[in-house]
């Protein structure tokens, strides 16, 4: 177990960080380069103003029509994404790791809030899976990977919760937490999780076309 822990917090950590950062970097740069070479006209239509305006609407809960039509999904979706992105950085245990590694520290979320958020992320993952299973038009388009991704997210959060509360088997869960988080991190550039990068590109382009060429709202 110790060996596995050492592996997970050593080479595998660096490998996953490299895959994540490298993958995101390569994908992002290659998309911009390809756009420059094969679809350069895209740059002629980009508008910072329209992109920002659109992002403000889409980044605000219920700021777009579709969000107002899907209240539950909007609430779950926003909280899920906030939890997903914030918890790894503001959890006391993680901030300690940063401090130990680089001497850096910042405010952390209280334990009860972290627990609530973690449980919420876990429930949200299940919500997404059940939504996929139960709503016909979403089930129709779902692939195995679409079901796997919430599981990929669920595992590190659930195991982290388990380990942090020293529940039975917490040592195994701790290692599982680290390993599954590394798998998740590595998967981001290579699965649909890549929307965390490409979503900005598509939003910027579409909102520019809508806002500054077609003078229409896209929210």
């Amino acid at each position: 177990m110790h060996q596995l822990y050492d592996l997970a917090t050593g080479p595998l950590l660096y490998l996953s960080l490299s895959l994540f950062a490298g993958g995101i970097l390569v994908q992002g740069i290659s998309l911009i380069r390809e756009t420059y070479t094969s679809e350069r006209f895209v740059f002629s239509f980009l508008s910072v103003k329209s992109a920002l305006l659109s992002m403000v609407h889409w980044g605000t809960p219920f700021g777009s029509t579709v969000m107002r039509k899907n209240i539950l999904l909007t609430v779950v979706g926003f909280l899920f994404h906030i939890g997903l992105l914030a918890l790894p950085f503001f959890l006391m245990a993680h901030v300690l790791l940063f401090y130990e590694a680089w001497g850096l520290s910042w405010p952390t979320v209280p334990g009860w809030a972290a627990d609530t958020a973690t449980l919420f992320v876990c429930i949200a993952c299940l919500f997404f899976v059940f939504r996929r299973l139960l709503v016909p038009d979403i089930r129709y388009i779902s692939t195995p990977m679409d079901y796997l991704i919430p599981v990929l997210i669920l595992v590190p959060f659930a195991s982290g919760f388990w380990a942090s509360h020293t529940l039975p088997g917490f040592r195994v869960c701790h290692v599982l937490h680290i390993l599954s988080a590394e798998v998740l991190l590595s998967a981001i550039p290579f699965t649909r999780l890549t929307h965390m990068l490409f979503g900005f590109f598509t939003r910027i382009y579409t909102s520019s076309e809508f806002g500054s060429t077609r003078f229409a709202k896209d929210w």
Partner: peptide, 11 residues
């Protein structure tokens, strides 16, 4: 980008 970004959310 469109194909990679779509998360099949059905919205």
């Amino acid at each position: 980008a469109y194909l990679k970004t779509c998360v099949h959310c059905g919205l």
